[in-house]
């Protein structure tokens, strides 16, 4: 097993990040100078109520959206306003996404969904299938490989999505409310799966509004009105709450 947080290596480093959205003639200032550092192998949650700016932050970290001001470094690479081609390439190389609504492609079966990022990576079809099956096995869904998403339960769908996020062996897994559409029992098992993946050394950032979920990570970054309210280890955070 790999050692947990390696010092001095920042997987994600954000300095004085600002983001505004135009709403009509007005401009909505969503992120107001965020500073965040995530080391390799960390299991972090970004928590906040709706409107706190957490989804915007995930989109920026996930290279799905660009920022207005500030500096964002991903695995040592400075991210500046980039073109779509480069963005797609970096997403494919560095990031694995897990979404609240799973976002599986409805007409592709489980293994085909898992194999899709490899297709964009330029991996041959045979190897894609082997890899996809390997990762489906990892999330315990090998027997379901040939099932379409609508033949799977919510928990199973999210496992397929996790396998898809892992298949390219990315640097960071970004999970946007990964348990938002699941019951509490299934949520726990999904979080356990993520924990297991983190134990193997993967950096994971979870976005959530639920305390219960955030508590299952190692570090909680609390976001409110576009600013970081607190950034502490889960145990410290819990102690504070109890006081």
């Amino acid at each position: 097993m790999q050692n947990k947080p390696r010092d001095n290596i920042f997987m994600i480093k954000i300095e004085q990040l600002h983001k505004s959205y135009p709403i009509g003639k007005e401009s909505l200032h969503v992120l107001k100078g965020i500073n965040l550092e995530v080391k390799e192998g960390e299991f972090v949650s970004i928590m906040g109520s709706s409107g706190s700016g957490k989804s915007t932050m995930l989109n920026i970290i996930g290279l799905l959206d660009d920022h207005d001001k500030g500096k964002y470094t991903l695995d040592g690479e400075l991210i500046q306003s980039m073109d779509e081609v480069k963005g797609a390439k970096l997403r494919n190389k560095f990031l694995g996404f897990v979404f609240q609504s799973f976002n599986l492609i409805a007409y592709k079966n489980a293994w085909e969904n898992v194999a899709l990022p490899l297709y964009y990576k330029g991996v041959g079809r045979k190897e894609r299938k082997i890899k996809a099956m390997e990762y489906l096995d990892k999330v315990g869904l090998k027997p379901w490989a040939n099932h379409l998403p609508n033949e799977l339960s919510g928990g199973q769908k999210q496992r397929v999505a996790i396998a898809r996020a892992l298949v390219t062996e990315p640097k960071v897994i970004l999970a946007d409310e990964p348990t938002g559409a699941l019951d509490s029992e299934t949520s726990d098992s999904v979080m356990k799966l993520l924990r297991g993946i983190n134990d193997e050394g993967m950096t994971i950032v979870v976005i959530t509004h639920e305390h219960d979920i955030a508590e299952l990570t190692d570090r909680i970054v609390l976001l409110k009105d576009g600013q970081i309210l607190s950034d502490e280890h889960t145990s410290t955070y819990n102690n504070k709450i109890k006081k």
Binding site: E84, R91, L104, L116, Y120
Partner: peptide, 16 residues
């Protein structure tokens, strides 16, 4: 649109 968005998130370049 949504499917294309998913594909983009997973690394599909615009040309694809």
């Amino acid at each position: 649109t949504k499917e294309l968005g998913i594909r983009k998130a997973l690394g599909a370049p615009p040309s694809h």
